[in-house]
Design a protein around this nucleic acid. Structure first.
Length: 422
RNA sequence: GAGGCUGUGGCUCAAUGGCGGAGCAUCUGACUGUGGAUCAGAGGGUUGUGGGUUCGACCCCCACCAGCCUCCCCA
C-alpha cells in the first residue's frame, strides 16, 4: 500500500464522484455560454514557450508555468492561461472571422503555485470572450453572463457579489489626487493590500513607500467613495443596462478592484463570496488589443475566466452541490449459473436495445451477492431468470426500492421495465 | 520563496516514553433462488519516509515528502 506512487503535488484524482461534479459544472457552463450564443472552442494544452514569453513576460513563465524541453529540444509549456492561445487562433484567421466573435472554452490549465484553499497546480477554467466589440456596452453582456451563471447554479446576490471598477476612472481619479504615472504601480499594490493590513499598518506601509500623509488621506477618501462610479459615463451606462436586464443585485461598484489594471483598459471586475472570504471566483475585464502581441491588427475585446476550484468551494459552502448519479445504469441482470451466462448477456443486450442502461453481472456467484452488488451501486431493478422462470417462459423483475418483485412473460420484459419507470 | 498545523488498518479517530486499539467498511457464515437489519467469526499495521536521542519511540529531536491554512503571487 505504502509504495503506491503519489500524485503530483497540487493535482487531483477525479473518481466518479468528482468527475460527475466536473461534468456537471461543464454542463452548467455550456448552458449559460450557449444561452448567450457563444461558440465552444479549445486550444492545445501544450504550447511553445515563446507564445507566453511574448505576452505575459517574466513572472508567469519564470515562476509559474510548467516549462520543459521536449525530446526534439524545443522549449514548451503546459498552458498556464488561455488568452495567448486564443490570440494566436484569432490572429491566424483575423480577416475571415465574423465579429463580434463570441467564444468560450472549458479545460485544464497548469500553474506551479503553492496549493492552498481554492488553488491547485492543475485546475480547470472557463474562459469566455466577446471579441471585436469596441463599445463598453458589450462589457454589460459579459457581466450579465457572470450573473446568469451564478443564478443558474443557485448562488444568490446575498452569497456572491460581482465587484466592478473601471481602469480609466481610476486613472483619472488617481491623477486628480496627485498620483504620478511612476507611483501608480505602488499605489495599485497598496490598494490590493488594503484589506489585508490593519489600518495603521497599511498607512505605515504607504509612508515607507514614499507617499505623504495627505496623499494617503486622499486615497482613503477615494477608495471609500462608493458613488465614484457616477463620475464614469461608461460605468453609469453599464449599471443601467444590468439593472434593466434584472441582474442589478449581483453587482457592486468597488474602487478597490484593481485586478490586472495594468493589463485591462476599461471595465474590470471580479466576483467573490459576499462575505469576502476566500479568493476571487472569477475575474475579467476589457482589453484594448487581443492580438497585438502575436502580430495582428488591433482588436478589442472583453472576457473573464472562472476556475473550477473556487467555485466548488463556494457551492459547497452554500450547500448547492447537486445530487449527481454516479452509476448510469439502474438495472442489473443477474447470472443464475455458468451455463446461463450467455443468456443473461443476451437479456442485457435486449434491454439496452430498448434504450435502457443495463449492467449484467459477469460471474455466476450466489444470487445473494449479486443482489448486494445491485444494492450497493444504487440500482433500482434486478432481472432474474432461473430454471423456474425459464421453464415457464417468464422472467422476474425485482424492484429494490419498492422491495417487490414481479414475474412477467419473457416477451414483456422491456415493456414492463419501461412501465415500471426504468 | 517564508511561516503554522497535521500525517496511526480502506475511512474516521484513540493510545503522550512502557504489549498499537475502537467504530465504520470489507470478507465469511447463520440464509444450498433473493439486497439495506441483526448476530457470530475472520482478514487487514515495519504508526508518511530517512536519520537521531533513549534500556525502551506512534509519542521527543533533525531532515525530507505530502495535505490543510496563511504570507508572497495571481497572467
Amino acid at each position: 500500500m505504502r509504495e503506491i506512487v503519489q500524485r503530483v503535488k497540487g493535482t487531483r484524482d477525479f473518481y466518479p464522484e468528482e468527475m460527475a461534479f466536473r461534468t456537471w459544472l461543464y454542463g452548467q457552463i455550456r448552458i449559460v455560454s450557449e444561452r448567450f450564443g457563444y461558440q465552444e472552442f479549445d486550444a492545445p494544452f501544450l504550447e511553445k514557450l515563446e507564445l507566453y514569453a511574448a505576452k505575459s513576460g517574466e513572472e508567469l513563465v519564470k515562476e509559474q508555468a510548467f516549462v520543459f524541453t521536449d525530446r526534439g529540444g524545443s522549449e514548451v509549456s503546459l498552458r498556464p492561461e488561455l488568452t495567448p492561445s486564443l490570440a494566436r487562433m484569432v490572429a491566424q484567421r483575423q480577416k475571415e472571422l465574423v465579429y463580434p466573435l463570441r467564444l468560450w472554452s472549458f479545460g485544464p490549465f497548469w500553474r506551479y503555485e503553492q496549493p492552498q484553499k481554492g488553488r491547485t497546480r492543475e485546475f480547470f477554467q472557463w474562459n469566455i470572450d466577446l471579441i471585436g466589440a469596441a463599445g463598453h456596452q458589450a462589457d454589460a453582456e459579459l457581466l450579465s453572463i457572470c450573473a446568469d451563471f451564478f443564478r443558474q447554479v443557485g448562488l444568490t446576490p446575498q452569497q456572491v457579489r460581482i465587484n466592478v471598477n473601471n481602469r480609466r476612472l481610476m486613472d483619472a481619479q488617481l491623477q486628480k489626487i496627485g498620483v504620478s504615472e511612476a507611483l501608480k504601480p505602488l499605489v495599485f499594490r497598496m490598494i490590493d493590500r488594503r484589506d489585508k493590513l490593519r489600518v495603521d499598518a497599511w498607512r505605515t506601509y504607504g509612508l515607507e513607500q514614499g507617499l505623504t500623509d495627505k496623499s494617503i488621506d486622499l486615497l482613503v477618501a477615494l477608495l471609500d467613495d462608493k458613488t465614484l462610479w457616477k463620475a464614469s459615463p461608461e460605468l453609469t451606462e453599464i449599471f443601467a443596462i444590468l439593472d434593466r436586464m434584472g441582474y442589478a443585485d449581483y453587482f457592486e461598484f468597488d474602487p478597490q478592484v484593481i485586478r490586472g489594471l495594468l493589463y485591462y483598459t476599461g471595465t474590470v471586475f471580479e466576483a467573490r463570496d459576499a462575505a469576502r472570504d476566500g479568493r476571487a471566483l472569477l475575474g475579467g475585464g476589457r482589453y484594448e488589443n487581443l492580438v497585438g502581441d502575436v502580430g495582428g491588427d488591433p482588436l478589442p475585446g472583453v472576457g473573464f475566466a472562472m476556475g473550477d476550484v473556487m467555485i466548488q468551494v463556494a457551492l459547497e459552502k452554500y450547500n448547492l452541490l447537486p445530487d449527481l448519479a454516479v452509476q448510469p445504469a439502474r438495472i442489473v441482470v443477474t447470472c443464475f449459473d455458468a451455463d446461463s451466462l450467455a443468456e443473461s448477456y443476451a437479456t442485457a443486450a435486449e434491454i439496452r436495445a430498448a434504450g435502457l442502461n443495463t449492467i449484467c453481472y459477469p460471474e455466476a456467484v450466489k444470487l445473494d451477492k449479486q443482489l448486494k452488488y445491485a444494492n450497493r451501486i444504487g440500482a433500482k431493478f434486478v432481472v432474474i431468470a432461473g430454471p423456474d422462470e425459464v421453464a415457464a417462459g417468464k422472467i422476474t423483475v425485482k424492484d429494490l426500492e419498492a422491495r417487490t418483485q414481479t414475474t412477467v412473460e419473457r416477451g414483456q420484459l422491456t415493456a414492463f421495465l419501461r412501465s415500471a419507470g426504468a
